[in-house]
Amino acid sequence: MATGGRRGAAAAPLLVAVAALLLGAAGHLYPGEVCPGMDIRNNLTRLHELENCSVIEGHLQILLMFKTRPEDFRDLSFPKLIMITDYLLLFRVYGLESLKDLFPNLTVIRGSRLFFNYALVIFEMVHLKELGLYNLMNITRGSVRIEKNNELCYLATIDWSRILDSVEDNYIVLNKDDNEECGDICPGTAKGKTNCPATVINGQFVERCWTHSHCQKVCPTICKSHGCTAEGLCCHSECLGNCSQPDDPTKCVACRNFYLDGRCVETCPPPYYHFQDWRCVNFSFCQDLHHKCKNSRRQGCHQYVIHNNKCIPECPSGYTMNSSNLLCTPCLGPCPKVCHLLEGEKTIDSVTSAQELRGCTVINGSLIINIRGGNNLAAELEANLGLIEEISGYLKIRRSYALVSLSFFRKLRLIRGETLEIGNYSFYALDNQNLRQLWDWSKHNLTITQGKLFFHYNPKLCLSEIHKMEEVSGTKGRQERNDIALKTNGDQASCENELLKFSYIRTSFDKI
């Protein structure tokens, strides 16, 4: 039985969820670079991206490699990797027998973001014989899940209580170790020597080791999670996991709180800001991140802002960003909400898709409305799209047979046209069989910064309504002859009103 693990408890099935942008060198404390989270699957090609990484700022997932063999891993080693800020997950990587050479110096898994409450997941690794993470000293947050690894031993010899604050939620089941077939031998045991430290858990006094050649490092209890030197002297209180010299914040392997210019500090002093819960960055760093993602459509890219001495992905609820200094300031009234469309555009074809934009005031991208039916549609669209004030790209209304009016965009005031449909149009209306009105132009103002209007096959939309939009939106004169079809717009509506004058002759039985 794995020490510190839980057996036999019912657990939810383990679901495996399925960018080499360097964020800056980590400095003297770390020998390499800070790398983003990685999802490495199918083959070993991307694994080489770990070569210079000291910190993975995010998670590391290595999974679904069915053609790899043990010899493929023999020359692979990433000794610079010290810390993973989120979680480490391995799933069905064939041929991998140990992690001792792959990650010989991995010391800390912070667990800032977890995989279903777990910071370390080893699942269905069919050839893994031992973990071998002999320098792993601290899992700051989260638990361990090690399950269905039929060859995995050296679990009962690990004292997880020396690595985690609590072992109650560890789930370590259905491994070879369960069948008591392992016969784990710690260093020196074969020669009758006791080389590794022994600890007591559940009444068992057991030597602690990761492999037959690597003991588990056990520091004096007084050192807590700070770690200790090879001689057993406690590291500085700002260290986490390990250090090369005692009581020196510049000799830590990793930091308990924050890293700044080669030393570990309790908090980031001005003019620095907390970033990702582990390091200090200056304003320029946060500003660069903001600008890199301002026009990016890459998933996970955030326009970072500053709030409460932190550089964070977005302002919290009730705050909006001051564009001059990136500071989050309290909103006066309802907060603006910028919604970034991942692929640059979004099609609204149902109430469900409209709900995804609920509360958005600025759309960074283009909207395509293609709704053919739905219950209580006008009210639903207004509830979900009615706060949109600005669209950076274009607005396209296409084959939306259920629409009679666009009044559900009740606050839309600006279409920038930074991206144009077919390279020309910022407003595009095609084949809307029941569209009769755009907006009530006596109450609604709309500016279209650039781009043209396109109207074709809107049989109940009168040309007068379209011409009014040209005047109000500032697009009059931009359109070419064929942009607004004269014969297919309003051709099934009563669009022309003329005053009919009647004269009559009164007659009676005795007068003409």
Rank of each mutant, 00 (worst) to 15 (best):
Y171V: 15
F78T: 01
V34A: 09
S284G: 11
P269L: 08
C234K: 04
E130V: 05
M38H: 13
H307K: 09
H59L: 01
L240K: 07
V305L: 08
S98H: 02
V121I: 07
H290G: 08
C239W: 00
D277N: 14
C209N: 06
L327M: 08
T189Y: 04
N149T: 07
H226V: 14
K224F: 07
G188S: 08
T250A: 10
P197T: 10
S112P: 00
L240F: 05
I109E: 00
Y259L: 04
H28T: 12
N325P: 05
S237A: 12
I62W: 02
P246F: 11
G318H: 05
S161T: 11
L152S: 04
T157M: 05
C264S: 01
C209Q: 02
L240A: 07
L50C: 02
W160C: 02
V265D: 03
G142E: 01
L120F: 00
K191L: 07
P197W: 06
C53Y: 04
F116G: 13
I185C: 05
L164Y: 04
C234H: 01
V121R: 03
V121E: 00
P104V: 01
I62E: 00
V34R: 03
C53L: 00
F285S: 09
D169L: 07
L63A: 08
T68N: 01
A119I: 00
R297Q: 10
P79L: 03
K100A: 06
Q303N: 07
V108C: 07
G318L: 06
D247F: 06
E238H: 11
I146C: 02
R141F: 09
H236T: 03
Y134P: 09
G232Q: 11
P197N: 03
S143E: 07
W160E: 01
L136Q: 05
H302M: 07
S225M: 06
N135W: 02
W278Q: 05
C186G: 11
F73G: 07
I84K: 00
I185A: 02
N202P: 11
T199W: 11
K292L: 10
Y272R: 02
C255G: 00
R110P: 00
C255A: 01
G37L: 08
L136Y: 01
N257S: 09
I82M: 13
A156M: 10
G241K: 06
C328P: 02
T189E: 07
I82G: 03
K148V: 05
I109C: 00
Y30N: 04
P36C: 15
N175F: 13
G232L: 12
K129H: 12
D39K: 08
L131F: 09
C196E: 13
S112T: 11
C252P: 00
C328Y: 04
L155G: 13
I146P: 00
L136S: 01
V34T: 08
Y259I: 15
C286I: 13
G95R: 04
Y94Q: 15
K67W: 09
I84L: 03
Y272K: 05
L50M: 09
P104H: 00
L90V: 07
R298Y: 14
Q276K: 06
S244N: 06
C328F: 03
H59V: 13
V121S: 09
P269A: 11
L164W: 06
L326E: 14
D165M: 03
N175Q: 06
C335F: 06
R110K: 10
S237D: 14
